[in-house]
């Protein structure tokens, strides 16, 4: 805090009183830096800001000849159509389900893993565990979903062989709507928990060891030390990552959901983004699906702002 204040006091007056001509000269002198920045700037202009500009087609009836800004204006028609469509409730519901399950189940697992791994005495075993647990993060989504399909196959899958062995009836996991969410979340944990764990482990490593020494002297048990030293020590990191998770809540996992979709599980697997893909790119309803996409982005942004506000109010940590 005090540091940023000092900086401001030092910088602002000088910057404000520079005459325009001198500022211009400064910009000219830095031309090489702008050249270095140019590729990245061109990139965001073309692939980020141009599409953002194009979002106005959500309020228009897009046709390729008139383009983004020339197509006829239709106001909120596309949004109204989405809200009144029979898929609306289902698609929103499915999206929220996946998102909430992700936060409640997939978010805490890496924290718990990190706390447990942090208990290990042997550095070598620690490192080994880390490597093994995070290796699935490098497998592509396509292959992970491919693995699901072969292992969960009702005829030959390993999981169903176990079920048959214990006398149960084989389950057609990928073709049953009720199984979509559990499979989705479990595979998410399987693939990503290890990688997410690394950040928490780093935070744990930066906790002052003398705290543990002191607690040990005072007779604190292992569990008490985890509870009262480790956990509070990484709470700021948890908060930040939680806000970030909220910020991309409605976006993550879209590719996996799309890959896991079968005609049979559609009633649980159709989420906002896959719906946008189907309606927009497969049926070429550009304006309608752009409106749905925009609806999704706004919802997402609102969630992010809200949670960041809550985090700031509760005095812990926030993004801004």
């Amino acid at each position: 805090m005090s540091q940023t204040l000092k900086k401001r006091r030092g910088e602002q007056p000088t910057q404000r009183h520079i005459p325009l001509s001198m500022r211009f000269k400064r910009v000219l002198r830095a031309w090489q830096l702008y050249v270095l920045l140019a590729p990245a700037l061109v990139y965001v202009a073309l692939f980020k800001y141009w599409p953002m500009y194009g979002v106005q087609i959500a309020f228009r009836n897009y046709n390729p000849i008139d383009g983004f800004s020339g197509s006829p204006w239709v106001g909120l028609d596309n949004f109204v159509r989405f809200i009144n469509s029979y898929q609306f409730g289902q698609v929103i519901g499915n999206t929220l389900w996946i998102a909430v399950l992700g936060l409640v189940i997939a978010f805490p697992v890496p924290i718990i893993l990190a706390l447990v791994v942090n208990q290990l005495q042997s550095e070598r075993f620690k490192k080994f565990t880390q490597t093994v647990l995070y290796s699935p993060a490098f497998i592509s989504t396509v292959v992970v979903v491919g693995i699901m399909f072969v292992l969960l196959s009702p005829r030959s899958g390993m999981v169903n062989n176990i079920i048959k062995l214990t006398g149960g009836e084989p389950i057609f996991f990928m073709g049953t709507p009720e199984w979509f969410r559990p499979v989705y979340v479990i595979s998410d944990v399987w693939q990503n928990a290890g990688f997410s764990m690394i950040v928490y482990l780093a935070a744990l490593a930066s906790i002052d060891p003398s705290l543990h020494e002191a607690a040990k002297v005072d007779g604190a048990s292992k569990f008490q030390r985890v509870r009262h030293i480790d956990l509070p020590g990484i709470t700021p990191v948890i908060t930040i990552l939680f806000i970030l998770a909220i910020g991309s809540l409605l976006n993550v996992g879209f590719e996996k959901a799309l890959l896991m979709q079968t005609d049979l599980n559609l009633s649980a697997s159709e989420i906002i983004q896959t719906y946008v893909y189907h309606a927009g790119l497969q049926q070429a309803q550009f304006s309608y699906s752009a409106a749905i996409g925009l609806f999704n982005s706004i919802l997402n942004l609102a969630l992010l702002v809200t949670f960041n506000w809550i985090a700031r109010r509760t005095q812990q940590a926030s993004l801004w």
């Binding site: 599409p51 927009g280 925009l294």
Partner: peptide, 10 residues
């Protein structure tokens, strides 16, 4: 971000 559809159109 502008979303999937406008990215495609661009």
């Amino acid at each position: 971000d502008g979303g999937l559809i406008t990215k495609y159109l661009v």
